[in-house]
Computed example of a mutant assay.
Amino acid sequence: MLDLNLKQIISVSMILFAIIDIIGSIPVVIALRQKAGHIESGKATLVSLLLMILFLYLGDELLKLIGLDVPSFAIAGSFVIFFIAMEMILGVNFFKEEVPESVSIVPLAFPLIAGAGTMTTLLSLKTEYATQNILVGIILNMIFVFIVLKNTLRIERLLGNAGLNVLRKAFGIILLAIAIKLFRANTGL
């Protein structure tokens, strides 16, 4: 029987919510929809879910195959998370993405939702949380991502540009703290 821990599930869910930042990505999703004409919310969510679950279970083996350990990957991930946080806080883009004709899989599912930051975070979370609790956190986040993708235009009207900017900056600060915590936990500082 699964030994689920509500505190861990809430922590993991909040960390993934901040790193996925689907609310902060609403302007990007709207721009992608305008360029492509249509986004398949279900397809994007399902592909993201599968990528995250595969990396959660196979990420360690992949790292071993290329000669890396989880703490090293977690430290590298803390830098990625740090830069994503700085993007959110400062409004500067360090990572540039090109928009192809079909946007539901690339760049929406990967790398926007299940990108390098998310994958790094998943492996980093495995150093502190039980896998089953991470899995529940992933599923909860993907349900939320699906709801947001289906209701992007309504959410944009509800929050307005100012509300979206405030949310993005608040989650940027949370991510910055997470990056520092991951760095300290995996370096012994």
Rank of each mutant, 00 (worst) to 15 (best):
K7S: 01
Q8Y: 03
I10E: 03
S11R: 05
V12N: 08
S13W: 03
S13K: 01
M14I: 13
I15N: 07
I15G: 08
I15A: 09
L16S: 12
L16A: 11
I19S: 07
I20E: 07
D21N: 11
I23C: 02
G24E: 00
P27E: 06
V28G: 02
I30P: 01
A31H: 05
Q34E: 15
Q34W: 04
K35E: 14
A36M: 06
G37M: 10
H38Q: 15
S41G: 13
G42P: 08
K43F: 15
A44E: 07
T45V: 14
T45A: 14
S48H: 12
L49S: 06
L50P: 01
I53E: 04
E61F: 15
L62N: 01
L63C: 05
L65E: 02
I66V: 10
G67Q: 05
G67T: 08
L68I: 10
D69T: 13
D69W: 00
A74S: 15
I75W: 00
I75C: 02
S78A: 14
V80I: 15
I81N: 03
I81F: 10
F82G: 07
I84S: 05
A85Y: 07
M86Q: 14
M88F: 12
M88Y: 06
G91V: 09
V92H: 08
N93Y: 03
F94D: 01
F95E: 06
